[in-house]
C-alpha cells in the first residue's frame, strides 16, 4: 500500500515518454521498476510485458499487471490511471484547441522532427527487451521465426505469441 504514491509517480512519468508507441518507454520502465524501486526482477518485467502483447486494446495495458504485482488491485488501478489519465487530459485539451494549432507552422516541424526520434527510441526499447528475452539459440531462433513470419505473412500476431508459448513450454523447461 505504501508503494501507491510511487506507483502513481512512476507510471504518470512513463506515460509522457510514449511518443510513437509504448516501446519508447521500455528502457526507462526497466530502470525505474527493476533498478530503482526493486518492484520486480527484469525477467518478471519481461514476462508481464510480453503477456501484454496478448491483451486486447491498448498494448501498454500491461502496466495494470505491473501495478497488481506491486500493490494488488489498488496498484493495478493506480498504475493504469496514472499511465492513461494525464496523457488523456493532454490529448483532450489539444483536441479542443486543434483548430487554432492547425496552421501553426511549428506543428509540422514537430511532427516531422519527432518521427525518426520515435523510431530510434522504439528500436532502443526493443534492444533492451531483447537483451533480457534472448538467452540461447532456441529463444533467438523463435524471435527470428516470428520476425520473418510477421514480415512475410498476414498471420495474426497474437497467434505467433501463443505459438511462442507452446514452443517455450515444450523446449525451454529447465
Amino acid at each position: 500500500m505504501d508503494q501507491l504514491p510511487a506507483v502513481a509517480r512512476v507510471f504518470a512519468y512513463l506515460s509522457l515518454l510514449t511518443i510513437g508507441g509504448g516501446m519508447a518507454a521500455f528502457p526507462e520502465m526497466k530502470n525505474l521498476v527493476v533498478d530503482v524501486h526493486h518492484w520486480m526482477t527484469f525477467p518478471q518485467l519481461i514476462h508481464l510485458y510480453s503477456v501484454g502483447q496478448l491483451a486486447p486494446g491498448p498494448n501498454m495495458m500491461m502496466v495494470a499487471a505491473l501495478g497488481e504485482r506491486i500493490s494488488g488491485l489498488p496498484g493495478a488501478f493506480i498504475a493504469a490511471a496514472a499511465f492513461f489519465i494525464p496523457t488523456g487530459i493532454l490529448t483532450f485539451v489539444v483536441g479542443k484547441v486543434w483548430d487554432k494549432l492547425k496552421n501553426w507552422p511549428w506543428r509540422t516541424s514537430i511532427q516531422l522532427g519527432l518521427a525518426p526520434v520515435a523510431v530510434g527510441l522504439a528500436v532502443a526499447g526493443t534492444i533492451s527487451l531483447g537483451k533480457g528475452a534472448i538467452q540461447d539459440w532456441i529463444t533467438a531462433g523463435l524471435a527470428l521465426i516470428v520476425f520473418f513470419a510477421t514480415l512475410k505473412t498476414k498471420i495474426n500476431p497474437a497467434l505467433l505469441i501463443l505459438g511462442g508459448a507452446v514452443v517455450g513450454a515444450i523446449a525451454l523447461r529447465v
Binding site: 516501446m23 519481461i46 514476462h47 510485458y49 510480453s50 503477456v51 502483447q53 496478448l54 523510431v119 522504439a122 528500436v123 526493443t126 527487451l129 531483447g130 533480457g132 528475452a133 534472448i134 538467452q135 532456441i138 529463444t139 533467438a140 523463435l142 524471435a143 527470428l144 521465426i145 516470428v146 520476425f147 520473418f148 513470419a149 510477421t150 514480415l151 500476431p157 505467433l160 505469441i161 505459438g163 511462442g164 508459448a165 507452446v166 514452443v167 517455450g168 513450454a169 515444450i170 523446449a171 525451454l172 523447461r173 529447465v174
Partner: peptide, 21 residues
C-alpha cells in the same frame, strides 16, 4: 516460466518486425 520465455522471445520478434516496417 518456460512458456513465458517463449512468449517473450516471440514478442521481441514481433515488435522488431513492426518497427522494421
Amino acid at each position: 516460466t518456460a512458456a513465458l520465455k517463449g512468449v517473450a522471445a516471440a514478442a521481441v520478434g514481433l515488435i522488431a518486425a513492426t518497427w522494421y516496417q
